[in-house]
């Protein structure tokens, strides 16, 4: 007899167990595929709508610094440069501070201080970016223009980087606000990475007479290198695509300048300022191509971040 034994007592159950599970699995599969579809749809619409701009400017779009709606000549160089420079400033400031915070949270802080400090850092991550932007404009920018920029100009003014208008609004301010925003992200991921270092390794080093700093430098940082790279790339991805915090303080000018004090723009701030006002197909299409460039750059960087973090973490690790 090859018939399967009937284990279900009622006919109703038979039908449910035959179509219920495949249906449930099918529905969940459709939604999971839907997440991929979102990505594909976003990419497709950006690609399709940027066609006029790609046809008109080609690859030269990426290296052209002009942005003129009247003559309909558009290039992405200023915005790309602004995005990269503000992100670089942010990383230069945020990475050392974040590693310091992570070190404090994982190694130095007394047990009863760890939770309040940890919560504080994570609250910093939860503050919406527009609040950072507004605070940067009304509080940080005046301080920079009255105190920090004159001091920098007096001491390092011979460098073109630190000469120019001391308005408090510009590339430097944008980079600092971004640094403030991404520090909690990098710090909390780095702290988790430090916590993954096996205690045996650290204790062996301490047992040999190493100081805390030597354990960090020679054991924890080498062990967690991939995870730290991941944390930095994660912060970088956030900084590249951050819109509101930057739009408030970057100054929104389409001119390339060697000075960090001068106003500039980033891809995201250009989109925020001009997208709804763009008249003319080529103008709109050029803005869409800017968005496409931003999407590709951040996707690449965040992809690296996840690769590094996945390699670092145990199976079923962080989200």
């Amino acid at each position: 007899m090859s018939r399967k034994p009937d284990t279900t007592p009622t006919p109703g159950r038979v039908s449910l167990s035959t179509w219920g599970d495949p249906l449930f699995k099918g529905i969940t599969f459709v939604f999971a595929a839907g997440v991929l579809a979102l990505l594909v749809a976003m990419f497709a619409v950006l690609w399709h709508e940027s066609a006029p701009s790609r046809a008109a400017f080609g690859l030269g779009f990426l290296t052209d610094a002009s942005w003129n709606p009247v003559t309909e000549r558009f290039g992405a160089l200023t915005a790309i440069a602004g995005t990269l420079i503000s992100t670089l400033i942010a990383l230069l400031v945020a990475v050392p501070i974040s590693v310091g915070i992570a070190l404090f949270l994982s190694e130095l802080a007394p047990a009863r201080l760890r939770t309040p400090f940890g919560v504080g850092i994570e609250l910093l991550a939860a503050i919406p970016s527009i609040v950072y932007g507004m605070w940067g404009l009304f509080v940080l920018a005046p301080i920079l223009s009255n105190l920090v920029q004159p001091a920098l100009a007096n001491s390092l003014g011979f460098l073109p980087l630190f000469s120019g208008p001391q308005m408090g609004i510009g590339m430097l301010t944008a980079g600092l606000v971004l640094a403030l925003m991404i520090t909690p992200f990098i710090a909390s991921v780095t702290r988790d990475v430090f916590r993954m270092v096996p205690p045996q390794l650290k204790e062996s080093a301490y047992g040999m007479g190493a100081t805390t700093w030597e354990v960090v430098r020679d054991i924890m940082i080498p062990y967690g290198r991939k995870g730290i790279y991941g944390a930095v790339f994660l912060g970088m991805g956030r900084a590249l695509g951050e819109t509101m915090a930057v739009t408030f303080v970057i100054g929104n000018s389409h001119r390339l300048s060697a000075s960090l004090f001068a106003p500039g723009n980033s891809i995201a701030s250009t989109l925020a300022n001009e997208f709804t006002e763009a008249d003319g197909d080529l103008y709109l299409s050029s803005l869409v191509e800017l968005g496409l460039v931003l999407f590709l750059i951040t996707f690449l960087i965040l992809g690296f971040a996840q690769l590094y973090l996945k390699r670092m973490s145990a199976p079923g690790g962080r989200s």
């Binding site: 991805g237 819109t243 931003l294 951040t298 996840q306 989200s319």
Partner: peptide, 12 residues
């Protein structure tokens, strides 16, 4: 992809 989209630029 979800992990990447979590941090993707919201303006896009």
């Amino acid at each position: 992809v979800s992990d990447i989209l979590v941090s993707a630029p919201s303006i896009v």
